[in-house]
Each structure stands twice: as structure tokens, then as C-alpha cells.
Design a protein around this nucleic acid. Structure first.
Lengths: 107, 107
DNA sequence: ATAATAATTAACCAAACGGTTAAATATCAT
DNA sequence: ATGATATTTAACCGTTTGGTTAATTATTAT
């Protein structure tokens, strides 16, 4: 099970999130995945490797072609982690902010 | 609204996730937040700045003390993004994997 | 056997990261 | 005014990141 560090690092780059999005619409070869991006195939190949390290992409070699598929399970772990703070993103911030603004609103 | 890039970058480091966890138990000063970590105050101060850039932490200066609070709303956006792939992490991978293993399982 | 295709590895580069120590700034206490 | 406290800024360092081009490996097609 790849470290959450690796999963979040992988997702922090917009190109890699776009690759995830692309693969969610079905498996594809490396060249096909690379096609829409304004960068070299080598650069995309490296991004794919980062996604593999995160466990988000599986690679199946068939001859010279490598077909990539999405494995979304690590995303679930990200969702689970963030979900722990659900109560906080629903909470109004006014109460907390009141502690700091306009000096000295007690309680 | 801070970029998702910044939010995910901020969360990719375990120290910063621990700071988020700490602040979810209530506001705290920088020194207090730094105390459990085996690194300098300056290092923690830098981590806090990254969390601020991501919109995850608010700072309130009161005299020489800076009190930090969690703002979890960016976490919600992370959860929303990952949630788009919920169908994929529930899907069995066998079907996809069957396409690539044991050469030539048709259909 | 030769050539074209799919992809990686190697070598390089500038910028960002995660840490350090030393110095500076601002505030509070005496 | 002096000194202690809270925090940041500056300068530095080794590693990682995100990109490049050139060379290499492996496979398929003629």
C-alpha cells in the first residue's frame, strides 16, 4: 500500500491530475496519454512513473506498447483522510475569527 | 481561493499533515505547534507558511504571539475532487487486469 | 536484414523543497 | 534602558522536481 505522501505528491501536479482524469475515461497507451500535453513524451513518461509509485496507475506491457489503467483506490484513502475534518469545514469560522479580530471579544 | 496544487502540495508532507491534525484540536501558537517535532522552530515556521499559502491555516498576530487556526475548507475541495472517482475505486480491477494478463483473454 | 515505432534510460539544468544556523525584528517584563 | 521571549528573515546546503535533448532497448513491419 503506497504511502499517502506519495499519493498526495502525485496529485499535486496538474498534469498528473489530468492524466488521472484521462485514464478515468478508459485505459490508454503512454503515447496516447501524452498527446494532448504541450511537453515531450519523456516528460509524460516521468509523470506516469510518479503515478505508478503512488499506486494510481497500473502498467501492462504488451509487446512494445504499454497500456495504462487507473487504480483509484489510493484516491479513496485521500478522501478518507480529508473526510476526518468534515466537521471543521462545515463549522462557521466567525467564532474562531472573533477570538482574534477587534481585540478582546471574550468567551 | 488557493490553487488545488498548493493544497495538495501542502498535504503531501507528513509534518504538515500533523500540524493540521494538531490545529483541528484547537488554535495554538507557533511555538506550541512546533514543540512535538524533532526539528527547529524555523523549520516548523516554514511549514506553517506553506499551509497558509494553501489557505489551510489562518494566522492572528496578537502582540508578539501568532495564533494559528485551521481553516478546513480547502480540504473539502480535495475531498470533492477525489470523490469524482468514487465509482472507480469501488469497481473491481479484475475486468481490467484480465485485459493484460495471461496474453490474449478475448472480450 | 532494415527500417519504423513505442517507450525508457542517461545526462543535464534551473527551480523548489526541507532542513540548518545566525541575525534581525517586535513585543513584553523589570 | 535591559533583557528575555516569540517569531521571522537571510543565507546556505543537499535532494527532489519538472522539464529538456540524445542515446538506447525492444518490438513490429517490410
Amino acid at each position: 500500500m503506497p504511502a499517502l505522501d506519495h499519493v498526495l505528491t502525485a496529485l499535486s501536479d496538474p498534469t498528473r491530475r489530468a492524466i488521472v482524469e484521462r485514464l478515468s475515461r478508459g485505459p490508454a497507451r503512454v503515447t496516447t496519454v501524452a498527446e494532448p500535453f504541450d511537453m515531450s513524451l519523456v516528460a509524460v513518461s516521468k509523470h506516469v512513473r510518479v503515478l505508478e509509485r503512488a499506486g494510481l496507475v497500473r502498467r501492462a506491457r504488451r509487446g512494445r506498447e504499454h497500456t495504462l489503467t487507473l487504480d483509484a483506490r489510493p484516491l479513496r484513502r485521500v478522501a478518507q483522510w480529508t473526510w476526518r475534518y468534515e466537521q471543521f469545514w462545515n463549522a462557521r469560522l466567525d467564532r474562531l475569527e472573533g477570538l482574534f479580530s477587534k481585540k478582546g471579544r471574550r468567551s
